[in-house]
Nucleic acid binder design. Structure first.
Lengths: 110, 110
DNA sequence: TCTCAAACTTACTAATGGTAAGTTAATTTT
DNA sequence: AAAATTAACTTACCATTAGTAAGTTTGAGA
């Protein structure tokens, strides 16, 4: 018998609508992905891009993106430099971001 | 001088990308909206539609939707019956849901 | 009238997030 | 070359949000 896992994300996040939206809806996740949409960025660049986010949460969200295959991390020359980049799977969220943007815009007339 | 409000949502949720995704990304919010997409529903119907959600959180999410103008509540005859319905603003999220669905599908090949 | 169901509400615990300070290695400045 | 600074984390602690379960109120049905 399997151990019942309740609401833990055992299945890949993209296995259904609920998993997906709960994942990309975690606090700050949306803007972190958004920030990486226009190309690879350093940790401090993402941080500077997102007013209000703390190092701790940014580290956590980036690690979650990596774990789920939406981003990769590259250590540059020294150990104090790293770069984050979206994978094709991460880049494919562009449509979702666009849809939210559209909603945000048309919202004023609704 | 205004009191600084930190990260509270003072502006309408649809005023920018960050506000919007943080709002629709709250736990269970996505599936609650999804559940209402195909027409008005009673409280217990939504609840039955979403395995795992508690009455407390469902109440909270529905009230947030109402507060932000994405849904309305109608008291039916007696006070023990109520019906929830998406407003045009809420219905307009259909595109966002579709985009997430598409991502979920193409995810397998990425 | 007695029981049951709908739609909450309350109380309490667990998990997640916010804030700030500390760490380590590599630059840059003096 | 020593001192200060920066990058990228990590740790610790408190606050907020979520999960779980039991209780409340009104109305409908047997």
């Amino acid at each position: 018998m399997d151990t019942p896992e309740k609401h833990e994300l055992v299945a890949p996040i993209c296995s259904n609508f609920h998993n997906t939206i709960e994942f990309i809806g975690r606090r700050w996740m949306g803007v972190v992905v958004y920030s990486l949409m226009d190309g690879p960025k350093r940790f401090h660049e993402i941080s500077a891009n997102i007013p209000g986010i703390s190092d701790r949460l940014l580290t956590e969200r980036l690690n979650e993106l990596i774990k789920e295959g939406l981003a990769t991390k590259t250590q540059l020359v020294s150990s104090t430099k790293s770069e984050y980049k979206l994978t094709p799977k991460g880049l494919a969220l562009k449509e979702v971001i666009a849809a939210i943007h559209n909603w945000t815009d048309q919202c004023r007339t609704l």
